[in-house]
Amino acid sequence: MSASKKKGTSAESAVVAYLRSRGFIQAERRALNGSQDRGDVAGIPGTVLEVKNCARTELASWVDEAEIERVNDGASLGAVWSKRRGKSNPADWFVIMSGRQFVSMLRELLELPPQADEPKEGEAA
């Protein structure tokens, strides 16, 4: 296994262990699915998580990747969980998502109905 793959596997395992410790006992690492990838973590209904442990931060491509995986999975929420340099606990890492995903999450949390007039990716509001 390459060093890069090992870093990724380690980060994914750490996120899964953290989620399980916080009550998400169904969380598990997901096997790769090629072009129909559905994220790195399974077991959280309606949610796709893409885990990153990279020296270089590439927010735009990571968020785009999480969005593709969210669509592939039919999930309502997609986010990137990125390892933070110097921090070993995933509780201290970053969770990144688009503004669209954040507002969608807030609306769901507050039990507000989805908005039918939400602009598509790349369109102005």
Results as ranks from 00 to 15, higher is better:
Met1Ile: 07
Met1Tyr: 00
Met1Phe: 10
Ser2Pro: 12
Ser2Ala: 13
Ala3Gln: 14
Ala3Trp: 07
Ser4Lys: 13
Lys5Leu: 11
Lys6Ser: 12
Lys7Trp: 08
Gly8Asp: 13
Gly8Trp: 06
Thr9Tyr: 09
Thr9Phe: 09
Ala11Asp: 00
Ala11Phe: 03
Glu12Tyr: 01
Glu12Asp: 04
Val15Glu: 12
Val15Pro: 04
Val16Glu: 13
Val16Thr: 08
Val16Ala: 09
Val16Asp: 06
Tyr18Met: 13
Tyr18Leu: 12
Leu19Asn: 09
Arg20Glu: 06
Arg20Trp: 01
Arg20Thr: 06
Ser21Glu: 11
Ser21Cys: 10
Arg22Leu: 06
Arg22Met: 08
Phe24Leu: 15
Phe24Gln: 07
Phe24Ile: 08
Phe24His: 15
Phe24Glu: 13
Ile25His: 14
Ile25Cys: 09
Gln26Lys: 15
Gln26Gly: 12
Ala27Cys: 14
Ala27His: 06
Glu28Arg: 15
Arg29Lys: 15
Ala31Leu: 14
Ala31Pro: 12
Ala31Arg: 11
Leu32Ser: 15
Leu32Trp: 05
Leu32His: 14
Asn33Asp: 13
Asn33Val: 08
Gly34Asp: 04
Ser35Arg: 10
Gln36Ser: 13
Gln36Ala: 10
Asp37Trp: 02
Asp37Ile: 00
Asp37Cys: 04
Arg38Asn: 08
Gly39Tyr: 01
Asp40Asn: 02
Asp40Glu: 05
Asp40Gly: 01
Val41Leu: 06
Val41Lys: 11
Val41Gly: 11
Val41Pro: 05
Ala42Thr: 02
Ala42Ile: 03
Ala42Gly: 11
Gly43Tyr: 12
Ile44Thr: 03
Ile44Lys: 00
Ile44Tyr: 04
Pro45Asn: 07
Gly46Ala: 09
Thr47Asn: 05
Thr47Phe: 03
Thr47His: 10
Val48Ser: 05
Val48Cys: 05
Val48Lys: 05
Val48Thr: 11
Leu49Cys: 09
Leu49Trp: 01
Leu49Met: 14
Glu50Lys: 08
Val51Trp: 00
Lys52Met: 02
Lys52Gln: 03
Lys52Trp: 00
Lys52Cys: 00
Asn53Pro: 00
Asn53Cys: 00
Asn53Ile: 00
Cys54Thr: 10
Ala55Met: 04
Ala55Leu: 02
Ala55Cys: 01
Ala55Lys: 03
Ala55Pro: 00
Arg56Val: 05
Arg56Ala: 03
Thr57Lys: 07
Thr57Ala: 09
Thr57Ser: 03
Glu58Leu: 08
Glu58Gly: 03
Leu59Ala: 13
Ala60Cys: 03
Trp62Lys: 00
Trp62Ser: 00
Trp62Arg: 00
Trp62Thr: 05
Val63Ser: 02
Val63Ala: 07
Asp64Glu: 13
Glu65Ala: 15
Glu65Leu: 09
Glu65Ser: 15
Glu65Met: 10
Glu65Gly: 13
Ala66Ile: 05
Ala66Phe: 09
Ala66His: 05
